[in-house]
Design a protein around this nucleic acid. Sequence first.
DNA 1: GATGAATGAGCGTTCATTCAT
DNA 2: CATGAATGAACGCTCATTCAT
Lengths: 191, 191, 191, 191
Amino acid sequence: MAKPEKRDEIVRAALELIAEHGFHGAPMAMIADRAGVGAGTIYRYFENKDLLITELYREVEGRSFPAIMEGYVPEAPVRERFLHLSTALLRYFINNSLEFRFVEQFHNSPYGVEFRRERLLGKMEDRFVYRELFESGVAQGVVKDFPLPVLFALALGPILAVARDHILGFIALDDVLITRTIEACWDAVRR
Amino acid sequence: MAKPEKRDEIVRAALELIAEHGFHGAPMAMIADRAGVGAGTIYRYFENKDLLITELYREVEGRSFPAIMEGYVPEAPVRERFLHLSTALLRYFINNSLEFRFVEQFHNSPYGVEFRRERLLGKMEDRFVYRELFESGVAQGVVKDFPLPVLFALALGPILAVARDHILGFIALDDVLITRTIEACWDAVRR
Amino acid sequence: MAKPEKRDEIVRAALELIAEHGFHGAPMAMIADRAGVGAGTIYRYFENKDLLITELYREVEGRSFPAIMEGYVPEAPVRERFLHLSTALLRYFINNSLEFRFVEQFHNSPYGVEFRRERLLGKMEDRFVYRELFESGVAQGVVKDFPLPVLFALALGPILAVARDHILGFIALDDVLITRTIEACWDAVRR
Amino acid sequence: MAKPEKRDEIVRAALELIAEHGFHGAPMAMIADRAGVGAGTIYRYFENKDLLITELYREVEGRSFPAIMEGYVPEAPVRERFLHLSTALLRYFINNSLEFRFVEQFHNSPYGVEFRRERLLGKMEDRFVYRELFESGVAQGVVKDFPLPVLFALALGPILAVARDHILGFIALDDVLITRTIEACWDAVRR
DNA sequence: GATGAATGAGCGTTCATTCAT
DNA sequence: CATGAATGAACGCTCATTCAT
């Protein structure tokens, strides 16, 4: 087994275990086991558990970006672009529930606090598109004039909530419901 | 120190420590210490740590109910009632950040999963008012016809998000911003 | 078993194991085992392994003092006093080989370095008597005018060496040989 | 890089690291690194770490021999020869502090015990000269009639002690002090 | 009823050694 | 021959839980 494959196996195993059982339920030995790797091997790729988790987070965070940018038309009207991004994001969460649950775990953990600010300021890739979108929306007078974090809350808060509920089996989001939900989010941010 | 006082001290200490440092940062010995109680004493009131935490959760969950019900007029129009409840809830979170942070921690933890269903079904006190409100709103045609979890997501998702951001110091919610944010949430759910 | 007894058992077990097998050969679990105590119990008495070892050292270092001071006559001539102290010290080492070997291990270890200075400056109890003795000896012109560390080296270097050899079974020190050896040490320091 | 050079690099690296940081601070990987060699390569030259260290010891022990023999006159009087050897040895220790510190570490470690006997019996090169010297000294009646280990202790114990103190910076040995110290050692062994 | 000393399973991490390349 | 990635046993340490007092 070549080098990058082992790293990937470790990352995948950590993602799975943390998504399924939380940070408590993912000891290094268990991650190693699930990755088909010796316990010490993890430390060849990651200095310690904290760094494994934060690197995993960065990796996972980046993965949604291409998904939401596919078919994105920067010249389209703000509303269209909002609907596109948000629909794609919700779909991505639903179709990648491991990633979604890991990220949720991460955000509500000691690790996540330091990452919050950069997310709020729209410094991460996917947030950055949203940021630009909101800023031009506000400038054009089609989006309510709120501080960025409030707009993020209005747009993404419900998306995260319904994604969570869907993944846990409390609702079944189909195409129609997704579309309507995203449109309701638009109602929240639009002027 | 009489019996119920000890129990209360333990609960208070656990709330504080978990809110401030997360579940990791709140060993039983530390909780006992902060409560001014012997380590073994906790086990006279709570069978084990899990039960301490879930009981603490139930208690904390119930506390917001009186706060949001104060001045609530069941006969008022749906919109008015929604604005009242949501504003009161957001204010409660902001003014009781320990409780808020604990509940957030709880929801994103192995403990929280089993509690989600009853929340989603509006079985907890405060959710129950919301549930009735949404149901009558839908019946009257003033609220979008969504499954309950989606309405909860649209209404409460942003509230939780802005409360979090406020408590962490990323935004400063004043009366005006609170009102406008809640009105935006109404835009999301109203027809 | 009452509290101080457990602490003493731990200290004794650590002393034995380190004396017999060196620092490598004395894992915490083994110390706990030999002390008849749970592994975690050690940490109720000592914050960590380093502190267990340095506290053990301080304790052991102090033990030789009463032994060498017994029958010490501060008014006696320098030579007499030197012979008394050194003989008593060598006897103490021989009769307490665990302590001796532990201290030897300690001095030649990362732990020991910081303690060396205070020993050299005669700041420890037993060294302090020697220091006074040498200083008055130099003042009276009966001891060679050397820096203190050199006098310590001349007096104690051979004592440590023969104690080591005796304990390891390479020589058999009897009363006559002890006396003659100490007198030879006096020859080294006397004018 | 040819074979013997690699071996030398490994030996040098091990010497440096152990002298500087002790046995704890010299993992095989670090030795390999410092030697500019792969970790596995060490095992082509040394069966395991213990053997690397003991071989290193034998090598280092031998190095002082030429230094002390330079200018040694076997026909000179015992006193002269003693002063020559001991002065040269002390100087060697001071000028080769890495070797000195390694050897000290070694002696006070599980490794060192088995080597003590042959040293005490004067079976190693440099000890052998001393042994002969002492034996002829005793025969001539100019050296005290002690068992060999006691004579070694009286002569070398102080030398090791002052070398240690000098290297650690607690005293500054200059030519005068060296000479006087060695003469004091002679006082200890001479009749 | 209350205590807190004692416990030991389980954690994250290190490192001497092996072996496929 | 040389490599260095991989290994896993063993380490120091934590903490939920128990139980003698």
